[in-house]
Deep mutational scan, measured.
Amino acid sequence: MSGIALSRLAQERKAWRKDHPFGFVAVPTKNPDGTMNLMNWECAIPGKKGTPWEGGLFKLRMLFKDDYPSSPPKCKFEPPLFHPNVYPSGTVCLSILEEDKDWRPAITIKQILLGIQELLNEPNIQDPAQAEAYTIYCQNRVEYEKRVRAQAKKFAPS
């Protein structure tokens, strides 16, 4: 494992614990031996107030490669969400998460999670990743928002 990646992720964890947006979660997972795995984080993004996503808490896994922060983490909703920019596998399609697009090593975990929260309610229809959600979003916004509200209710924190 890269010392650069681990040191950056340790800084990220410290900064997150000191200050993070209300309702968001970002925690490194534990290895079988109980030690912390900084390369694999369990996160959760709350649906934004005043949107059909409100009330939901959407679980996301963030996986970092050894060359982080040169390369972005892979962000994957578990379980996958109904959304035009979420692949059926759950992987998020967002330009700041793509090395050859808008990724920059200075982007923080907090910025990534806030960017994904923004994307939930403002899909990028130029870059669809899920045919069904994309089609319904474009053709029947009322039905799309109904499905999103049902999903938010399903993923409401207990």
Rank of each mutant, 00 (worst) to 15 (best):
E118I: 10
P128H: 02
C75N: 06
P72H: 05
L119H: 07
H83F: 06
L94M: 04
R13G: 00
Y137K: 06
F82Y: 06
D100I: 15
P105N: 01
F77P: 02
S71V: 05
M62G: 04
Q151Y: 08
D127L: 01
E132C: 09
S158Q: 12
L57F: 08
V148E: 03
Y68W: 07
A106E: 05
L9A: 07
E122F: 11
V86P: 02
D19W: 06
P128G: 13
E118L: 11
F77D: 00
S70K: 07
P73L: 05
Q151N: 07
A156L: 07
K110S: 07
E12G: 02
N31T: 08
T135S: 11
V86I: 08
F58T: 06
W16K: 05
P128C: 08
D19K: 06
I96S: 13
V148G: 02
N37Q: 14
E54S: 12
W16G: 02
D67G: 14
S71F: 06
P72F: 00
R104I: 01
A15R: 11
W103F: 11
K154E: 11
K146S: 15
T108K: 13
H83D: 04
F64E: 06
H83C: 03
E54T: 10
S71Q: 12
G90S: 03
A150W: 09
A150L: 13
E99H: 07
T29G: 12
P157N: 10
I96G: 06
E99A: 12
L120N: 00
E132V: 08
R149S: 10
E145M: 11
K74R: 14
F77E: 03
L38P: 08
Q126R: 14
L119Q: 02
M36F: 06
Q151T: 05
T29A: 09
V86G: 01
I4D: 15
S70L: 14
T29C: 13
A156C: 10
I109L: 11
P72A: 13
N31L: 14
K14I: 09
I109Y: 03
E78N: 14
Q139G: 07
R141N: 13
Q151P: 02
I136A: 11
P80N: 13
E145S: 07
F24P: 00
S70N: 14
L63H: 12
T35C: 02
P123L: 01
L119T: 01
F58M: 07
L114I: 11
T135K: 06
L114A: 12
K18Q: 09
K18F: 06
L81M: 11
N124E: 03
E118R: 11
K110G: 05
C93W: 00
E122M: 12
K146P: 00
K154H: 09
R8I: 00
G90I: 02
G34A: 07
Y87M: 08
F82P: 03
P128W: 05
Q111E: 12
F24A: 02
G90H: 01
E99P: 12
W16R: 01
P73K: 03
K30A: 09
E42A: 13
Q130M: 01
K101T: 13
S2V: 15
G56P: 09
A44G: 14
H20I: 05
P105F: 01
E12N: 07
P52F: 10
N31D: 05
Q117A: 14
N37F: 13
N140E: 12
G34T: 04
L9S: 00
K110H: 09
P88A: 14
V148Y: 03
R17W: 04
F22C: 02
L120T: 07
R8M: 11
P105L: 03
D127M: 01
K48H: 09
V27T: 03
F58Q: 07
S89A: 13
Y144W: 06
T35K: 01
C138G: 08
S89T: 12
D19L: 04
R17F: 02
K110E: 07
T35L: 02
P128R: 11
T108R: 15
L120G: 04
M39Q: 02
G3H: 08
E122V: 13
L97Y: 05
K146R: 12
P157H: 10
A15P: 01
A156S: 10
A129R: 03
I136E: 12
N37K: 13
K59W: 15
Q11V: 13
V92F: 04
V25H: 09
S7C: 10
W53M: 04
V148N: 01
A26F: 13
E54Q: 12
N40S: 14
V92W: 04
M62V: 12
G47A: 03
E42D: 12
C93P: 00
A133R: 04
Q11Y: 13
K65G: 11
K59A: 09
N121C: 10
T91A: 15
E145P: 05
S71R: 08
C93D: 07
R149K: 12
S70I: 14
Y87H: 05
N124V: 03
K59Y: 10
E42W: 08
A44S: 08
L81H: 00
K74H: 15
P80L: 08
K59F: 13
A129V: 00
K59R: 13
V142G: 13
S95Q: 03
I136M: 11
P73Y: 03
E145K: 08
A150R: 12
Q130I: 02
C138A: 15
T29W: 03
C138Q: 11
F82G: 04
E42V: 13
G56H: 07
Q151K: 05
H83N: 01
Y68T: 06
P123A: 06
K76R: 14
G90K: 03
G3V: 10
A129P: 04
Q117N: 10
L9Y: 13
W53P: 04
M39I: 07
Y87E: 04
L114P: 14
C43Y: 05
K18N: 03
I136P: 01
W103H: 06
D33K: 02
F64G: 03
I125W: 10
N85K: 03
S71L: 06
K48P: 15
T108S: 14
R17K: 10
P52W: 11
D66W: 07
Q117T: 12
T135G: 06
N124R: 03
E122L: 10
T108W: 14
A26S: 10
P79W: 14
G23T: 01
E98A: 15
A15G: 10
M39R: 08
P21R: 00
Q117K: 08
Q139M: 12
K65S: 13
R17D: 01
Y144K: 02
L113C: 13
T35P: 05
W16N: 01
R147V: 11
P123C: 04
P69F: 05
N31H: 11
M39W: 09
D67Q: 10
